[in-house]
Every structure is written in structure tokens, then in C-alpha cells.
């Protein structure tokens, strides 16, 4: 790949990580009401761990270094009619706050869009440079 257009690859890495973030949040939201018996761990929320890629000068973007999992204990909810309820009538629900997940989803989406519009801007800049001094 042409290293001269490095800014494109950098924005690309931003898009990848933010997409992974949106995928994780979507997964958390999909499982916000996943019930498990108290004998098992609750559904654990996923958090994307990102780190900047350093090269000693202007940097090379961002990379996903791993996934962190949330609290395995979750919330104990009293629901004696539930088929998975234990002897005391409790089930485990994930420790996921709907409001918090929705606001982080907005952040992730904004970040993704910002990287996409940066790709457009960078592309225009390079095109202007290629046309410079022509004719």
C-alpha cells in the first residue's frame, strides 16, 4: 500500500476501532435483559480497550488491544415465577445501564462519522496536491 497516503490508513484504523466499539455496545444492548440462574455468572458487558499506535512522531492511528468484561455478579432480581429462579426466587441479570450504553453509542457513532469525514477531507487534500502546478 502506498505509504505516501498514510493519513488514510490512520483514519481507517479509527473507523475499525469505533466500529468494534459500536458492535460491543450493540451486543450489550441486545443482552441487557438476558437472564441467567444464580449458579452461573451474569452476562458480562463488553468494553473495547483501545491504545494509540506510536511511531515516535505523528503517530499511526489507534488499535484495539483487547476486550474488557464487566461485572460477572450482575444484579440479583427477585422473580420467583421465573423458570430459572433459584430456591430463594432470585435470578441474575447483567449489570448494564441502558442509559449509559445509549450515550456511549452516540459517542461511538460520532467518532465513526468523524473518521469517515476525515477520510473525505484527506482525500481532497491529496487530490489537490496531485493537481498542483498542472497545465
Amino acid at each position: 500500500m502506498s505509504a505516501v497516503f498514510e493519513a488514510l490508513g490512520i483514519s481507517g484504523s479509527g473507523m475499525e476501532v469505533h466500529q468494534a466499539w459500536m458492535d460491543a455496545i450493540s451486543d450489550n444492548l441486545a443482552n441487557v435483559n438476558t437472564v441467567r440462574p444464580t449458579s452461573q455468572a451474569a452476562f458480562q458487558a463488553r468494553y473495547v480497550v483501545a491504545a494509540g499506535v506510536e511511531d515516535g512522531s505523528t503517530g499511526l492511528g489507534v488499535t484495539e488491544t483487547g476486550i474488557a468484561l464487566g461485572d460477572p455478579n450482575g444484579r440479583l432480581v427477585y422473580s420467583p415465577q421465573h423458570p430459572m429462579a433459584d430456591s430463594k426466587g432470585y435470578v441474575r441479570l447483567p449489570d448494564i445501564d441502558l442509559g449509559e450504553q445509549m450515550s456511549t453509542m452516540i459517542m461511538a457513532q460520532r467518532g465513526y462519522q468523524a473518521n469517515i469525514s476525515n477520510v473525505d477531507r484527506v482525500k481532497e487534500t491529496y487530490q489537490a496536491a496531485i493537481q498542483m502546478g498542472r497545465g
Binding site: M1, S2, A3, V4, F5, A129, I130, M132, G133
Partner: peptide, 21 residues
């Protein structure tokens, strides 16, 4: 260098080419 992807900066090539022209 531009063809083999070893160019560091695009304006490098463009300025040199304009100078030569």
C-alpha cells in the same frame, strides 16, 4: 519512488516535477 510506494510526501514529487518542467 511514487510508483513503488516509497515516496514519503506527495508534494515532494509534485514540486520536483514542476521545477523540472
Amino acid at each position: 519512488q511514487a510508483a513503488t510506494g516509497n515516496l514519503t510526501d506527495i508534494h515532494d514529487y509534485v514540486i520536483t516535477a514542476t521545477k523540472a518542467q
